[in-house]
Design a protein around this nucleic acid. Structure first.
Lengths: 313, 313
DNA sequence: CGTGCAATG
DNA sequence: CATTGCACG
């Protein structure tokens, strides 16, 4: 499954690639609607670690549609999954020898809803379930986990959706504030921060295909965008993918989510909802690549995103 | 779709056929699990009418699995369907020119549940929705309709299931009594009676593959069997299929329902739940055939049953 | 247009 | 092992 032909340079992503105009379909864009039968992904470069984040939109369904082929092909050091939607840990989802550490989070009192899980090749020093700074921390345990490694914190998260008609926009804003507080608390511990997951926000117009018609759609309201901006500003973090790609004319058109409805995938109508957000030092000194695995569509309505870092976690 | 090669004799079914031993699979038994791609069924004999009854287990699903090919191949004069599970009439389910009459019954306050519908080439004199003799007649309108034709009443029905753990066995017994009363009322009008549908009962051990292990399973309790017996006795009706086939060693093994579970279809583990029950005079003088369309499996967990009658309705 | 659940059979 | 509606996205 793994390609042995690629021996990536240390900073490949910093040479922008795969981007294109905002025209209906970027040149060479992927429009497959099911997982490719053979999946070859670049090896993790020597001396680097790779983290992947993927909203699987239901593990049981994803398993039938190529989940494992992606996991094997990517061979990430840390795997963060969102919306597993199972009510018990699934065994042998990943090879337990390769990933001795796993942590499952479940939504309180709502079976088959949300849920995050992380796997890791190395065992973290410490694990924090949920958002301790949230007014109702118990209700966040299915949505976020903080893994402490020697050099950094890795946060795998599934940020609450504001809901149809924005009925849960207030709860979302409460979450954003609580998360900001939590990030400030762990930042005080003088370790690097890697915040990943389905953040359920498009930060800027460049991050979705149709910004003008979606200003009151969950994920692109001013409130959510401001909430995200505030976190980046106050905690002094950067959106690694955007930082690398820039905001120029040719930087758009790469998305991590394509609605199952209206044939959005084939039409290239997507949203960038899945991120790797890091502190600036880590970004500057250690980030090698921040990429969207757009070709890995079909086992979910989201595709995985990956971050490659120099050094160890 | 219709076969023009068959010119059936007037009383074909009275020569028993298709029956066999109760051994795991009857010789020549159908074990297809999806609708046959080409479906040829005998034409209605000259001077006869044909009625079909079919529990479709969800019309929308059935439509995707060959519903229309059966309807066309059978070309019945009256079509009685049960468990349509839609909340509004579906248009063009059958050709409205061929079947100018239709009547839809919906379960009160329970969308996507039960529901009967009838189509007829000739328009009945009178239509009675539901069971007027029932303590709560409104709650029976999704389950039974009585069509009055010049020479007979045709009742299309979906008899309430006693439920898991027999939690609704009492309601079922109330229904059975109410139906008996209703049949006695219409019998007083000196017309023939044809009661059809998914009657949700196996009358005798011969009517299901595993009688001994199912004495407390809904559909084969003493209470339900006695309720059915009482109707036949008190209203003086006969189970046409059993009357023709008899109760001998070779008469079993023909079923109208095969659970989706446990590969019952392939194993030939079935139940005869769908009937044509008539008054004895009609049976003696006019019934030509009472058959189970066992080959028409796959668009539902039930197969259609048909009755062929001499003369007009 | 998908995921999951719950009720129903 | 199917069907449906529902909540959610």
């Amino acid at each position: 499954a793994k390609s042995t032909t690629t021996s990536a340079p240390i900073k490949p992503a910093l040479t922008k690639k795969g981007s294109g105009s905002k025209s209906p379909l970027r040149a060479g864009a992927f429009t497959n609607t099911s997982m490719p039968t053979t999946l070859e992904l670049p090896m993790t470069p020597e001396g680097c670690v790779k983290i992947t984040s993927w909203n699987v939109s239901g593990l049981n369904a994803s398993l039938k549609k190529g989940f494992k082929s992606y996991i094997k092909a990517e061979d990430a050091d840390v795997i963060c999954l969102q919306e597993h939607k199972v009510s018990q840990p699934l065994m042998n989802l990943v090879d337990p020898k390769t990933y001795p550490f796993s942590w499952w989070g479940f939504e309180k009192d709502k079976k088959g809803y949300a849920g995050v899980v992380v796997f890791s090749k190395t065992t973290p020093i410490n694990v924090t379930a949920g958002l301790p700074t949230h007014p109702d921390p118990d209700c966040t345990k299915g949505r976020i986990v903080t893994l402490e490694y020697p050099t950094c914190f890795v946060l795998g998260s599934y940020v609450p959706n504001a809901g149809q008609g924005l009925v849960r926009l207030k709860e979302r804003m409460v979450w954003d504030v609580a998360l900001k507080e939590w990030l400030l608390q762990i930042k005080a511990k003088d370790k690097h921060i890697i915040w990943t997951g389905d953040l359920n926000v498009c930060h800027k117009p460049i991050d979705l295909r149709n910004p003008t018609t979606n200003t009151r759609t969950p994920g692109f309201t001013n409130e959510e965008r401001a909430g995200f901006s505030a976190i980046l500003d106050k905690v002094d973090l950067v959106d690694t993918f955007r930082e690398i790609q820039g905001e120029g004319e040719d930087a758009g058109g790469q998305y991590s989510y394509f609605s199952y409805r209206f044939q959005c995938r084939v039409k290239g109508i997507g949203w960038r909802l899945d991120y790797f957000v890091t502190d600036k030092e880590l970004y500057k000194d250690r980030v090698v690549e921040s990429a969207i695995r757009e070709e890995c569509y079909g086992a979910s309505d989201h595709v995985p995103v990956v971050l490659v870092l120099k050094g160890a976690l």
